[in-house]
C-alpha cells in the first residue's frame, strides 16, 4: 500500500515537473514567428502575384524547424485580434527553418490566402496572434509617418529594435551585409591557432578535470563504504581465499586476457586456411521445385 502511494506521488511529481518544464522550455512552434519587415507605402517596390504594388508584411520563422503559420491571426487592431485568419491545410503556410513569408496587406482577401482583409493606410499597430486568437505572438507599433518604398523592420533577425531599412528585402534576410564566418573571425585574431589551442585545451582539461575531481572523491567514498561493509566479514574469510584474491591482481588478469587474445588470434589464422564443405542433406528445395518455377497451364 505504502509502495503504491509512493509510486503515485512520484508520478504526480514527474507530471508537475513535465508541465512546469514545458511551460519554461522554449518550444519551437508559432511562438517563434516574428514580424520582421513592413512596407506601408508601396509605389514602385515589389509587386504581388497580380502585378499590384501593395503594402506587405514579412514574417520570419526564427525556429530551427519548420513552423506552420496556418491557423494564426494577423491584425492591425488589437481589439480585434482575429481580424484575418490564416487558412490551415495549405502547404504554402509552412515556413521552413529560419525562413520568411510575405503577406500582402491590400484588403483583397479573395486574391489568395496571402492577401489580407485590411490594408495599412491607417494602421498604427500590426500584430500576430496564435491559433487560439488570444495569445499575442508578436506586435509592432508603426510610426505615424512613412516614406514611399522604404520599409520598416528589424535590422537583423535577432534584433528587438525596429528602424527604417536602407534596402527592402521581402522574403529575405534584412541584414544583407557581408559577414565573416565564425572561423574567419576567429583566425583574424588568432592567425596561428595558438589562442584556439590554449582555449580548447583549457576547456578539454576543465571538462575532464571535473570528471577527475568527482570520481576521485566518489572513489574514496565507495572505497570507505566497501571497507566498512567488509570489516565483519573479513574475519570469516579463510586465509586461503585471501591468498587467492591477492594473487589474482589486475595485472595477472591483464596477462591472462592478453595471452588468451593472442592465442585466439593465432588459432583463428590457422583455422582460416582450412576449407570445409558440408553437404546439405536436404534434397528438396523450393528453389529447384517445378511447382514454384513453372506456370500452371491454362485450362
Amino acid at each position: 500500500m505504502q509502495r503504491s502511494i509512493k509510486c503515485f506521488l512520484s508520478g504526480i511529481a514527474v507530471l508537475i515537473l513535465i508541465v512546469a518544464g514545458a511551460r519554461i522550455a522554449r518550444a519551437q512552434n508559432a511562438s517563434d514567428l516574428k514580424l520582421n519587415e513592413i512596407l506601408v507605402l508601396n509605389d514602385s517596390n515589389s509587386v504581388d502575384d497580380f502585378g499590384m504594388h501593395t503594402a506587405w508584411i514579412e514574417i520570419f520563422n526564427s525556429a530551427y524547424n519548420t513552423v506552420n503559420i496556418g491557423g494564426c491571426y494577423l491584425t492591425d487592431d488589437l481589439s480585434n485580434p482575429t481580424k484575418y485568419w490564416i487558412p490551415t491545410g495549405d502547404p504554402a503556410t509552412q515556413i521552413p527553418s529560419r525562413n520568411y513569408i510575405v503577406f500582402w496587406a491590400d484588403n483583397q482577401p479573395t486574391r489568395g490566402i496571402f492577401h489580407l482583409n485590411f490594408d495599412l493606410k491607417n494602421s498604427r499597430t500590426i500584430a500576430l496572434f496564435n491559433a487560439d486568437g488570444k495569445t499575442l505572438v508578436d506586435k509592432v507599433d508603426l510610426p505615424s509617418e512613412h516614406k514611399p518604398d522604404v520599409t520598416y523592420g528589424r535590422p537583423t533577425n535577432e534584433s528587438t529594435e525596429w528602424v527604417y531599412l536602407e534596402k527592402s528585402t521581402p522574403g529575405a534576410n534584412n541584414d544583407y551585409t557581408k559577414k565573416k564566418s565564425a572561423g574567419e573571425s576567429f583566425v583574424e585574431f588568432d592567425p596561428y591557432g595558438i589562442g584556439m589551442t590554449m582555449i580548447a585545451m583549457f576547456v578539454v582539461f576543465s571538462a575532464l578535470s571535473m570528471l577527475f575531481i568527482i570520481y576521485k572523491n566518489m572513489g574514496r567514498f565507495f572505497i570507505r563504504r566497501a571497507t566498512s561493509s567488509n570489516k565483519p566479514a573479513t574475519s570469516a574469510v579463510s586465509t586461503s581465499v585471501k591468498h587467492s584474491e591477492e594473487e589474482m591482481s589486475g595485472e595477472v588478469n591483464a596477462a591472462i586476457a592478453m595471452a588468451l587474445y593472442m592465442y585466439q588470434s593465432e588459432f583463428h589464422d590457422e583455422e582460416n586456411t582450412v576449407l570445409t564443405i558440408h553437404k546439405v542433406s536436404r534434397n528438396y528445395s523450393p528453389w529447384s521445385s517445378k511447382i514454384y518455377t513453372l506456370r500452371k497451364s491454362p485450362r
Binding site: 572561423g183 574567419e184 592567425p191 596561428y192 591557432g193 584556439m196 589551442t197 575532464l208 578535470s209 576521485k216
Partner: peptide
Amino acid sequence: PKLILIGAAAQLGIFGAYCLALALGFSPT
C-alpha cells in the same frame, strides 16, 4: 581517475595539427 587527464593531454595532437594546417594555408574550418 587521474588517468582521465592523460586523455585530455593527448588532445594536444588535435590543436597542434590545427596550428600546422593554418600555417599551410588551409581555411579555419
